[in-house]
Amino acid sequence: MSGYPVAARDLTVRFGATTALDGATFDLPAGGLHGLLGRNGSGKTTLLSTLAGLRTPSSGSVLVDGVDPFENARVMGGTGLVRESGDLLSDASVRSNLRLLGDIRSTWHADRADELVDLFRLDRRKAVSALSRGQRSALGAVVGLASRAPLTILDEVYLGMDAPTRQLFYDLLLADVIEHPRTVILSSHLIGEIEHLLERVVILHAGRVLLSDEVDALRAKGVTLTGAASAVAAAVDGLTVVATRDLGATRQVTVFDDLDDARLARARSAGVDLGAVPLQDLFIHLTGEESR
């Protein structure tokens, strides 16, 4: 088992007059750790619910392991969607919830769930409703990891965790997908900490796919150029500029484009400093107010 491949083709989902997804097209290969990035209200949760077979497209299609997941028992059984709100029985204890999941999920690993509950120091006797936000997030992570579903979708699960718990979660997630390869989609608007963990990323903005690419390829396209305004202006002539800042006579420009080494070498010899663009910054520049 190496996970389900996922694809969307011109996927559109409307709720009355609202268009939540507007012609989204992307592919995620089987067996990788991928990111879905979008601001609040960009359509992430609608997209993930559609992938999990919980709703039907208004037009276009999604394919999970090659088939339409809606009401498909095989792929729905192999898909584990964990939302931050938690799809758990809030009045029941942690222990009963985990037992119930073990009964309904064929891929569930009860021993792994037990280990993870200990690692995250969760109290098994507590009702889910009595857990703190961070503890509920950790329980979501336990469910996502222990279900070992061929398509595991973690919708904003780590946002409620504190920094040490997030680090623990990343380490456990990475070790788990290496040991038990499957397709994992992490969705968030906060990715600074996980950009190196991801293989591909899909960036949604206002229901559309802004970008779908390997994180490493995106990295190679982004560059900041800092130097004398005239030298920087000459260096970026004809390139796609996503942000410009002037600091006195110094200008810093963020470019997102196919870059050739010769041009960059010329910029460098003209005294322009070149820097990396973290994925989080690129995301902010591409989806920020000024760019739309």
Binding site: G32, L33, D171, L174, V177, I178, H196, L197, E199
Partner: peptide
């Protein structure tokens, strides 16, 4: 590649490449 990915917290496919 597995040790590398977990030690430096990077994607295993990236390390493998």
């Amino acid at each position: 590649t597995t040790q590398y990915a977990t030690t430096y917290r990077i994607n295993p496919a990236t390390a493998a490449k």
